[in-house]
């Protein structure tokens, strides 16, 4: 009647050469469509479509090399990087804080939820010109635009996450002797964590959109400006080079978010209770 001690607990951590080979194969299969696309692009450029419209991979790589070796791109990178990080961090912090407090207090939620929902519906991109007027053409307006886009995404997810915490779980923890602080730490934060992570992940591309649109609208420096100028001087290689750099930003951010998520949500990955990649 008593359960016996466990054998090796989880599905045996995949080891051995077979597993490594399988991993490599998986990667190969993943890379294949990308490589095919690049080859097609290279081939089609100048044959099916004029190169002046679409450039070609080798030209883009050459342009990238040139941009980095001459140092021309660094000031743009630096500005855009700052805007992205600041906009993202401010937006996430605000979103988590506001989402959490409104999620925990039904009184606050009753008052503010309609407003937040109304603002949520506004296409934030439309605010870009206004923000330029308010915050100037420097990084302020881009940070504002990015952070407001990030804020709403994170806010909404955290709010829903905190609201979804099972009432019975909360009551049980109170009976076990928890005070409000302990309740936050042991129940609400971990319960909201998957939602926070989801919001943070979704917010990454939005922070990029916010910053780039801001720079398109009006700016003195930044990748958005660089792309804008490249396109208005018929330099498609430059446009694609700028886009590749943005892609790099997003990929690195996603990797970091993924690593944090795996650490924070170990219990979910282990349980196999559905995919966490939303």
């Amino acid at each position: 009647m008593r359960e016996v001690a466990p054998r090796s607990s989880l599905a045996s951590a995949g080891g051995g050469l077979g597993a490594i080979g399988e991993k490599a194969l998986q990667w190969l299969v993943k890379l294949l469509p990308g490589v095919a696309l690049l080859i097609f692009w290279q081939w089609a450029s100048g044959r099916l479509i004029k190169e002046i419209y679409v450039s070609k991979p080798t030209a883009v790589v050459a342009r990238l090399y040139e941009l980095f070796s001459s140092g021309e791109i660094y000031p743009h990178l630096w500005i855009t990087g700052q805007e992205l990080v600041l906009g993202y961090v401010i937006g996430v912090a605000g979103g988590v804080l506001a989402g959490y407090s409104l999620g925990r207090s039904s009184r606050l939620a009753r008052i503010f939820e309609p407003y937040v929902m109304a603002f949520y519906g506004i296409p934030k991109i439309a605010l870009a010109p206004l923000f330029i007027i308010w915050f100037g053409i420097g990084i302020g307006s881009k940070v504002a635009l990015a952070s407001i886009m990030v804020f709403f995404l994170v806010f909404y997810n955290v709010f829903a996450g905190v609201r979804s915490v099972d009432r019975e779980l909360v009551n049980l923890t109170l009976i076990m002797g928890a005070n409000q602080r302990q309740l936050t730490y042991h129940v609400f934060l971990p319960a909201a964590a998957p939602f926070v992570m989801l919001g943070m992940r979704l917010a990454i591309p939005y922070s990029v959109i916010g910053v780039i649109v801001g720079e398109f609208t009006s700016s003195v420096q930044g990748l958005g400006l660089f792309i804008h100028e490249a396109s208005s001087t018929y330099d498609p290689a430059g446009v694609f080079a700028g886009i590749v750099i943005l892609l790099g930003f997003v990929t690195v951010a996603n990797l970091i978010a993924g690593a944090i998520e795996r650490r924070l949500l170990r219990w979910r990955t282990l349980s196999g209770s559905g995919p966490i990649d939303a």
Partner: peptide, 23 residues
């Protein structure tokens, strides 16, 4: 309760330890 309602983000050990931590 009717459902076990262990906290899914804590291991069994941590779940059972929780009331003692809180106290």
């Amino acid at each position: 309760p009717q459902q076990a309602q262990l906290l899914p983000w804590k291991t069994l050990g941590e779940n059972v330890e929780l009331p003692l931590v809180l106290r």
